[in-house]
Lab assay of single mutants.
Amino acid sequence: KKSYVLIKVKNPKTKETHTIVVPEENLEEVLKALASQPNVKVVDIERFP
């Protein structure tokens, strides 16, 4: 059974918020990819039960 993680990201320029759902096993690479985006800020990470 896969567990999923909900990542909320915000664009500081446009103030838009997006929610991305990723499998927990991919969380680290997704966070690394997001960290390299200049106008993306991770605001929240939630685990799915």
Rank of each mutant, 00 (worst) to 15 (best):
K1I: 09
K1R: 08
K1N: 10
K1V: 07
K2L: 09
S3V: 12
S3T: 11
Y4E: 04
Y4M: 11
V5L: 07
V5D: 01
L6R: 14
I7L: 04
I7T: 00
I7W: 00
K8C: 07
K8N: 04
K8M: 11
K8D: 02
K8W: 11
V9P: 00
V9E: 00
K10D: 04
K10M: 15
K10S: 13
K10W: 15
K10R: 13
K10G: 05
N11C: 11
N11Y: 12
N11W: 10
N11H: 06
P12R: 15
P12N: 15
P12K: 15
K13H: 13
K13A: 09
T14K: 03
T14G: 03
T14D: 03
T14R: 04
K15H: 12
K15L: 12
K15R: 08
K15P: 03
E16A: 09
E16M: 11
T17W: 12
T17Q: 09
T17R: 06
H18R: 13
H18Q: 06
T19E: 06
T19H: 09
I20R: 02
I20C: 08
V22A: 03
V22T: 04
V22M: 02
P23C: 14
E24D: 05
E24V: 08
E24L: 10
E25M: 05
E25T: 05
E25W: 08
E25K: 05
E25I: 05
N26K: 12
N26Y: 15
L27G: 01
L27I: 04
L27F: 04
E28W: 12
E28M: 09
E28D: 09
E28F: 11
E29K: 08
E29M: 12
E29A: 10
E29I: 07
E29S: 08
E29H: 09
E29Y: 08
V30G: 01
V30F: 13
V30N: 01
L31P: 00
L31Y: 02
K32S: 07
K32H: 08
K32A: 11
K32Q: 09
A33N: 08
L34D: 00
L34T: 01
A35E: 10
A35Y: 10
S36V: 08
S36W: 06
S36I: 07
S36Q: 12
P38Q: 09
P38A: 09
P38F: 03
N39S: 06
V40A: 07
V40P: 02
V40C: 10
K41C: 15
K41L: 14
K41Q: 13
K41P: 02
V42C: 05
V42N: 01
V42P: 01
V42H: 01
V43R: 02
D44P: 02
D44T: 15
D44R: 13
D44C: 12
D44K: 11
I45W: 07
I45G: 01
E46K: 12
E46H: 13
E46T: 14
E46Q: 13
E46C: 13
R47Q: 05
P49R: 04
P49N: 06
